[in-house]
Design a binder for these strands. Sequence first.
DNA 1: AACTATAATGAAATCGATTACAACAGGGGG
DNA 2: CCCCCTGTTGTAATCGATTTCATTATAGTT
Lengths: 328, 328
Amino acid sequence: MTIREVASLAGVSAAAVSRYLNGGSLSEEKRERIREAIKETGYQPDSAARLMRTGKVHQIGVIVPKICSDAVSRIVDGVTAICRERGFLVVLCNTDGNRDLEKNYISFLQNRNAAGLIIMGVSMTPAVEDALKNCQVPFVITGQNYEAFPCVFNDDFHAVYALMNMVIKRGRRKIAYLGVSDEDLAAGSERRRGAVSSAVDSGISEESLIIENCSFSAASGYAAMEKVLMEHPDTDGVVCATDTIAVGARAAIRKAGRKVPEDISIAGVGDSWMDEFMDPPLTTAQLFHLQCGKDAAKMLFHMIDGDDDDGPMRQTLLTYRIVERDSI
Amino acid sequence: MTIREVASLAGVSAAAVSRYLNGGSLSEEKRERIREAIKETGYQPDSAARLMRTGKVHQIGVIVPKICSDAVSRIVDGVTAICRERGFLVVLCNTDGNRDLEKNYISFLQNRNAAGLIIMGVSMTPAVEDALKNCQVPFVITGQNYEAFPCVFNDDFHAVYALMNMVIKRGRRKIAYLGVSDEDLAAGSERRRGAVSSAVDSGISEESLIIENCSFSAASGYAAMEKVLMEHPDTDGVVCATDTIAVGARAAIRKAGRKVPEDISIAGVGDSWMDEFMDPPLTTAQLFHLQCGKDAAKMLFHMIDGDDDDGPMRQTLLTYRIVERDSI
DNA sequence: AACTATAATGAAATCGATTACAACAGGGGG
DNA sequence: CCCCCTGTTGTAATCGATTTCATTATAGTT
């Protein structure tokens, strides 16, 4: 079903049908005939041809390091919600943590496959930075804060700072921080800095704060906590970079026969759905992932629409909320 | 950068460059010159124009009822893995449980936006069934078994049947089944039937099996379990349609002061990552979601490639594995 | 040498929509 | 009555790749 067939069925030119669809001057009479013909045929304009002519893709690309993650899937959820409103499709690109793929996707998506990009958990290697600098379509980075690029990110530093303060206020002095690699600017470096700053500000020396690095899994949280309890049996508090790590750490504490929160306080970050069903319910710093996705998408559409007035590059700092439960 | 510019730079015709890219007879000499020109310019053929001419989209559509779900995200992970190998992009469509959207996406994606569809958690309303019957592109349904369509699905019935048997073998007689709505053929109807069959086959009457319906959340599992314990204080076993429900149920049992597994046995379905970190670790029927996604994608590509020889419509039944932990 | 099959090549048509342009009609102002 | 402006309309060019077709060159066969 092409525009010409619809046109001849309605007894008008193809241009008239196009005007009907895209808004152009047209008599009410023809308008009616075209409406009829379209309803009758169920005609939908070919998006490839339309794209070919106008150059406007109604898709955006979302690049993620993995999909099976509470945080990532919530952000993606927010992005899809806004895109649906706008009639845009979402192209989901899973790099599986592979930097080369990240770079490849960035360059490939520009080639008429996406009107803009949302990138999460970007690993800012020189190659990726280069790809972004040369990027022909607008993009927004989520979850991490790079001065040079538009991004939507969390207040990772203060979230952990606040959590740590709470644990210290409970009288804990021998505290462990289970973090993730500094390669991850936000969940790694920023959160760790928050933990250290809080400790130091409260008179706990940086050296006496126990720091262990984990991957993003509960299993690695379990292993790290086991190690901490082995090497520092007097540990009485633990703050985890993510709730998933906290789940593992909590199991290790249980295995060691220690009580939470009597013997050891524990806290996480993220407000995962299972936090309130843990035993005891986990104190956490809630992050607004869904909002993050929505904000990033809205920002991207502003850039795509050019509503930006070439205005200042935007950096959106999201808030966090301490959810105090019984684990500290 | 168009094919003509590259061509003139290499001193050949546009057709020659196209032949270079798509395979056609071409002298080694021109081949070399074109290789040069492409490297120099970084030319990438315009996918819109290519699509326009050939009609071959290198995208597939994935329609999901929600994204924030362990099962869904793992399946999607499997799909993206196969698509990446094949150089296809994945268009992720989140219907958020809205049936109209499901139908709309199915019809919209056919319009040159996808070479095929993978649909999960389809709600087979007449409208959706109609949309599928008229679908111009191949599609595969995951997680549910419809005779009339190609699908990849789990052995939901036997998974729960086996779990239930284990609980009964532990000597439990007053058992509750926390399920989900029958609207969901697989997780709802099939699993419930498995629970009932097992009970009946073991001499427990259908009437004495306690059945409560939940949504897919831990909170609803908590509420349902609370209700069960209130109305049937002698309950000594509970099987849940999903691990998430089990997490909620387990918390309700704890709240009620009952011990697991001494007083009550509990089991779930899905093998969520947090199962082994629960207290006690949760016995579950592991489902192979990643494999499900991969199989569905492979099946779809067979259909797209036409390797099917118009062969029989395929129905893939996945296996399950009982993971026995300490909760029963 | 004559002939045929095969490879190499470019010009031009094509996919289906949008849009610049030209043509024309009708209305209002002088 | 003429001019100009605005609104309606269709024709044809266009986007950038692929592919058909016709042509020429080359090799292989009698």
